[in-house]
Design a protein around this nucleic acid. Structure first.
Lengths: 356, 356
DNA sequence: GTGAAAGCGCTAACAG
DNA sequence: CTGTTAGCGCTTTCAC
């Protein structure tokens, strides 16, 4: 519910907004000094072909008139906006918020601004956002696809048109562009191995959608760790979710109904692990005594639950930083080479109570 | 640590980026049809003064050539960018992330894009961001100040220049512009009263900086609740922090050294409450048995700590939504009235274990 | 209906 | 060093 109040300060502030005042242009400065606008332009852009006195006079008048250069006019000429389009699924997820922060800090130094667009995990909105940002003529795109994006026509179209492109976190593999990802494989390899080291042998996996690359890689890490230790992979121990609470619940019920229920559950995302722990607690099952649990990501929440969640720590801020730097590289050598490396940001195991 | 991999797909993707291809303009369309660019423009902008056949032909060729209107040129003429500047302290705080999300969803419908700039709680960076976004010629500003912003010259300057302005969360009181805030007073009144209802009498307050409006209002809510119940206000029970962990620790130490230490602690922010609970746990003090604790905000973390944190739930997403709508109103009736209402988003008490 | 011309604010090539 | 001219891509008079 919301309340409205008339602002009691309205009449007291004593500042009047100057509506509609035509903006000051270089022509105003030129007129005032009786010189041509080209000279003013030169003075303002540090062009050497201006006498020091003229420059000084121009700068003075510019300040006096509070002149603000019009970036639109400038952009029209240089055909650049110094704006970058950042497309993410959901800014409210700490993981993406941290990446965005990293990107911004990386590119702000070079005077680039970022336009953030959320796809809300909808491929359709993702498509519309790309379209809209293209029209806004951003200088480049940093894109993290939705979970369900399977058709990469839009980003291919951008590539074809020659837009500088960086793909991060949920990447498009089909294009030779810079990519920045978490170390999915190693993350699950590490947490799974940790559970094995803790003496667990019946280790289940709470995975993601089958088509999602990150999910696939994490599952491969899990399987590799099992293999390494001579533990047979059992498909009934693997549950694929679409990251919804119901799926987690269904997975547990299924596992507990098994003749040999798992003694540990590896998850590929912290939120799932935390939901898991809550459900187990409701059922009176002890974590880690009965079932150990691990996560992935080291969400802010991971250290707050009880017991603390053992997890693989990622550094989303660093991922953003690297993605931003890659974009700056592309922008710099725009017309020479296209680097198409994949950067893998390695994390580290954070051991807390949930793994025993 | 990061690893680099040469992308093995580089040679396989079969799509070639068309570097530098000059963008398609209305002149290309005009030439192809042997008509003037004015007619093309008219056809594209739904101007009635075009024959249906001409329009159809233009639309066809436009699609064929994949024509994209140049927003910069358009903006230069109309003097608008359909971009809004959003200035927040830190996108990684769930509170601000939710607000940003609300703003975006509110304005996206009307075709506005948002440029997010983080001030990192630095008044200096806040100032630079305002400056930069003004140069980028955004159509309006939605601003949440840093904790330490005391000088509002920058935003006043924007106001004076006639920019549509909305102030949210940490607002500037000195200007007659729309403001959207949480219900600070009521929040602390409510949590304090709840503690009193739980039988507590020696209630301390973990407050914020004295100069910060939200902090002042919350303290007033706390004091009003005490007064209401005939409990004497004791200044030694109030600690002002600058939201740092050390300050929280110092406050506790001070309170515990008192001849009559508090039996409850009201805080004005969840993060502080959670830090508080951790420190108390370390000291072997039981929450809520020995000391009850309440928070403010209902952070995602509030339901994860043990015991759960009793807190006043805010709806930051709604605050963003309202702020965005206010901005749209300003933009619509830009040259008529300036609404200057204050919208107060009311929350509600969420009772969990920490209050007993 | 359509075309020619002016102009949004600025830079850049070309003369002096 | 400085002024003139010609655009950047588009809309918008103003003629016809």
């Amino acid at each position: 519910m919301m309340f409205l109040f008339k602002n009691i300060f309205s009449h007291l502030c004593g500042i009047d907004p100057v509506m509609q005042k035509r903006q000051i242009t270089i022509i105003d400065i030129a007129k005032k000094l009786g010189i041509s606008k080209s000279t003013v332009s030169r003075a303002l852009t540090n062009n050497p072909n201006v006498s020091p006195e003229t420059r000084k006079a121009v700068l003075e008048v510019a300040k006096e008139l509070d002149y603000q250069p019009n970036m639109l006019a400038l952009g029209l000429i240089k055909n650049e906006t110094r704006m970058l389009g950042v497309i993410i699924p959901d800014i409210q997820k700490p993981f993406f918020a941290a990446i965005v922060s990293g990107i911004q800090h990386a590119v702000a130094r070079m005077g680039y601004r970022t336009i953030i667009a959320q796809s809300d995990e909808s491929p359709q909105i993702e498509k519309e956002n790309i379209q809209a940002l293209m029209l806004s003529r951003v200088d480049g795109f940093l894109i993290c696809h939705t979970r369900d994006t399977r058709n990469f026509d839009q980003i291919k179209m951008l590539y074809q048109k020659g837009f500088p492109l960086v793909s991060f976190a949920r990447i498009c593999q089909e294009l030779p562009i810079p990519k920045v990802v978490e170390d999915d494989f190693n993350g699950l390899y590490t947490t799974t191995q940790h559970l094995i080291d803790c003496g667990r042998r019946r280790i289940a996996l709470l995975a993601g959608p089958k088509h999602l690359l990150a999910s696939k890689l994490r599952q491969q890490g899990y399987m590799a760790a099992l293999r390494q230790h001579g533990i047979t992979y059992r498909s009934e121990y693997v549950a694929h979710t679409r990251f919804l609470h119901e799926h987690v619940k269904a997975a547990i019920d299924q596992w507990l109904a098994l003749p040999e229920p798992p003694d540990a559950i590896c998850t590929i995302y912290d939120a799932g692990a935390i939901q898991l722990m809550e459900i187990l607690k409701e059922k009176g099952i002890q974590v880690p005594a009965d079932i150990a649990v691990t996560g992935f990501g080291n969400d802010p929440a991971a250290c707050l639950v009880v017991p603390g969640l053992t997890t693989y720590e990622q550094k989303p801020y660093d991922i953003g930083l690297v993605a931003g730097k890659n974009m700056l590289d592309l922008l710099k050598k725009r017309f020479t080479t296209i680097p198409s490396e994949m950067t893998i940001s390695t994390g580290s195991l954070v051991v807390r109570g949930s793994s025993g």
